[in-house]
Computed example of a mutant assay.
Amino acid sequence: MATYKVVIMGKEYVLTSEENKDYTERLAAALDKRIKDMRARFSSLSITDCAVLTALDCMDELGQANRNIDNIRTQIKDYVDDAGRARNQATGAQREIKILKERVEQLEKELAERTNFSAMNNVGEAVSAEDILKGDIKAAIGETSEPEAVHAENNAQRRSIQDSPYMRSYEQAMNKRPADGAAGGARFSGNDQGNNK
C-alpha cells in the first residue's frame, strides 16, 4: 500500500492505493478530464453535479463491460462444449474406421485363402476371385439366398469342367466322328437326298 497525491478539478486529494503511482495518476487525470468535459457541456451544473453524472457514466460503462465479459464467457463455454462434442464424434469415427479396416483385412485374408485353395484345386472347385468377392458382398448385405448361392456354385463348377482340357479333347473327338448312316465320313445335304430316290 502506498499514498499518493492527485489533483482533480483543482482540488488536491491524498489517496492510498495498492496500484503504482503512474497508474493512479492516470486514473485521476482521466477523471479530471471527464468532469471538465461534463462541466463544459452543462455550464449551469455545479462541480458536484458533474462529478455525480460522470460517476453514473462510469458505472454504466462498467455494467456494459461486465455484460460483455459474461457474453464472452458464455461463448467460450459454447465453444468448449462444441469442441467436446466434435472430439467425441471424431473418437467414434476413428473407432468405426478401425473396425472397418479390421473387417477389410479379414475379408482380404479370406479371399487370399480361397484363391490359394482354388488354385490348388484345378478340377470342379475352381472359382474366380471375382465370384468369391461378389458372393461375399451379397452375403454381407443379405441379398443372397441359399438356393442362389448353390446355383452360383454349380455354375462355377460347370464352367470349370467345361474349361478343362479333358472336356475339350472329348468335344474335338465327337466333332470328328462320322454322322450316322454316312459311309467313310461323307455327309449328305438335303439336295443330295432329293436326288437319290
Rank of each mutant, 00 (worst) to 15 (best):
A2N: 15
Y4V: 02
V7N: 12
I8E: 02
Y13H: 11
N20F: 02
K21P: 01
L27I: 15
A30T: 07
A30V: 05
L31V: 15
R34M: 12
M38C: 10
A40T: 06
R41A: 13
L45K: 09
S46V: 03
A51V: 07
M59S: 14
G63E: 15
G63A: 15
N66R: 12
I69C: 06
I72K: 12
R73H: 05
I76R: 11
K77A: 12
K77E: 12
Y79F: 07
D81W: 02
D82I: 10
Q89R: 11
A90R: 05
A90E: 06
T91Q: 08
G92I: 02
I97W: 01
L100V: 11
K101E: 14
V104M: 08
E105M: 07
Q106V: 00
L107F: 11
E108W: 02
A112T: 09
T115G: 08
S118V: 03
E125N: 09
A126Y: 13
S128R: 05
A129S: 14
E130W: 01
D131A: 08
L133S: 12
K134P: 00
G135Q: 05
A140Y: 07
E146C: 01
E153G: 13
N154L: 15
N154R: 10
N155Y: 02
N155H: 03
R158E: 11
Q162K: 06
M167T: 10
R168C: 01
M174T: 05
K176P: 00
R177H: 04
P178R: 06
P178I: 03
P178E: 04
P178D: 05
A179F: 07
A183M: 13
A183S: 12
A183P: 05
G185P: 03
F188P: 00
S189G: 15
N195R: 14
